[in-house]
């Protein structure tokens, strides 16, 4: 059932994002095409197409944010909730499907943005140059770090994804808390967001005062000792990931509890 929910979530959001991505890449192409001599030779049409390109780019990122809120709030907590929440599906699957698809579009927007920048900025031969340089960079890092490079990349990617997920889950939890109020739900959600983020900050501060973390913060990393320190740093990152993961789980638990036990659709 989760895969079906994800399918419908992608259908519901893809009809907005795919045209946006397409428009972004198209205007990147147009900008590139009408100003082949580079940014210093910009004329009016190029300026216009550049302006459109930039507005689409901004619009795309604003849209990921709006969609993240809208899909959760409108689809589950307004009249549409009567349909979604009476489907024979556990509430947590609704949350997971919305979370994953939201993350998908945020990452997708990032990738579309990078590609569009490459379309505009790259000159002939740049791509091969980048590929070559990336290969040497990869080589150097590998010589320096050895196989732990893969562990590093894994940690970094996991860290980014967990941070992204917790950023979305705090918004979902806030909307769910706002739903508990009979009036001024939006205002209550906003208040809940401020309360939740302050609470998380306080928790982080408290935890960073515990002996384990004061130990981490007292370590001075010098570049020539990076290899020696890497286990410690990796542990610090791992702890950060675990803590963010726990926060994320807590937001999830709050959201799930409200959706399954405290639901009160208008």
């Amino acid at each position: 059932m989760l895969s079906k929910l994800i399918k419908y979530e992608i259908k519901a959001t893809g009809r907005i994002f795919l045209p946006l991505f397409l428009a972004l890449l198209m205007f990147a192409g147009i900008t590139r095409f009408i100003s082949p001599l580079g940014p210093e030779k910009f004329d009016t049409p190029a300026m216009i197409s550049m302006a459109i390109y930039i507005s689409i780019m901004v619009g795309m990122f604003v849209m990921t944010f709006i969609m993240m809120i809208q899909r959760f709030n409108k689809n589950l907590l307004t009249d549409e909730g009567y349909l979604m929440l009476t489907l024979p599906v556990k509430p947590w699957k609704h949350i997971v499907s919305k979370l994953l698809v939201s993350m998908l579009w945020i990452v997708g927007s990032g990738i579309a943005a990078i590609i569009s920048i490459m379309i505009i900025a790259l000159k002939k031969g740049d791509l091969t140059k980048i590929a070559v340089e990336f290969a040497t960079f990869h080589q150097q890092v590998y010589e320096y770090l050895g196989t732990s490079m893969y562990l590093w990349s894994f940690e970094i990617i996991l860290g980014i994804l967990i941070t992204l997920a917790s950023g979305i889950m705090i918004v979902y939890a806030s909307i769910a808390i706002g739903h508990l109020f009979s009036r001024h739900k939006m205002l209550a959600s906003f208040g809940a967001f401020i309360a939740l983020s302050s609470l998380s900050k306080i928790l982080i501060t408290l935890i960073s005062l515990t002996p384990v973390f004061t130990y981490f913060s007292n370590i001075h990393i010098s570049s020539n000792d990076f290899i020696g320190m890497q286990h410690v740093i990796q542990w610090a990152i791992a702890c950060g990931i675990i803590f963010t993961g726990l926060l994320c789980a807590a937001y999830f638990a709050v959201t799930n509890f409200i959706l399954s036990k405290r639901l009160n659709l208008e």
Binding site: N75, D79, E80, G81, Y82, L83, T86, V89, L265
Partner: peptide, 19 residues
């Protein structure tokens, strides 16, 4: 979940999305 499989529910609201 088990009861939702056997219950067909018509709410008083229109729950249809607009797209």
């Amino acid at each position: 979940v088990a009861t939702k499989k056997i219950v067909s529910y018509l709410p008083e609201k229109t729950y249809l999305n607009d797209w």
